[in-house]
Amino acid sequence: MTHTSHIHDDGSHHDHDHPHAEISVGEKPGYYAVMETAVRELLIAKGLITANDIRHQLEVLDSRTPALGAKVVARAWVDPGFKARLLADGRAACEEFGISFYDDTQLIVLENTPAVHNLIVCTLCSCYPRPVLGLPPDWYKLKPYRARAVSEPRVVLREFGTIIPDDVEVRVSDSTSAVRYLVLPMRPAGTENLGEEQLAALVTRDAMIGVIPVTLDQEVGQ
């Protein structure tokens, strides 16, 4: 371990005088990791792609975060014309907004209303609106959420602290094919005087998956 001066997550700035676990990869790669390395090296050796292509695609994926989706939601809240186009063709409206889609997926935007609460899941794997939200959270990819979101969605929602009244329909969209889904949450009351940027700061990843509503007291950056 090298002893360097650096800033910790808590903001403290100090020289090392306490032990850290070494940051390294200790375990042997598994079957699929070896397969990925082998295929990648072959593709590069055959000249089909370059190492820089892969690095660049990682940069593309890293540039996609829930902050983009939040901007789309805020724009839809303040611009009825944009909202209508977003609900008619999610992908085209995001592209109009300046968010490119780097794959062949379509986007259907699901509007939450006082009568319908939407929840998204991919029971087969981890389909997710990555161009606008980035990588999905781990729980979204794990089997308990994938199985329970379609079999007992109201219980799952309750575990997220979201209680949906019985007279509100819960509509679960299972993404399995070429379509990705994004939930358009309801704009909370009391936000009439907020600007688009302030509104976007209220919109979290989980609200766009549909496990929580957007609330005024939402801590930004959760």
């Binding site: 379609v150 079999s151 007992e152 969605p153 109201r154 219980v155 019985d166 007279d167 509100v168 329909e169 819960v170 509509r171 679960v172 969209s173 299972d174 993404s175 399995t176 094919s177 070429a178 379509v179």
Partner: peptide
């Protein structure tokens, strides 16, 4: 309808599952 997918579904009879199918 969720009640069509799961015989013992707990929730509103209006709850539904949506999916894209070829």
């Amino acid at each position: 309808p969720m009640t069509q997918v799961w015989a013992d579904y707990q929730g509103s009879p209006r709850d539904e599952l949506r999916i894209e199918i070829f």
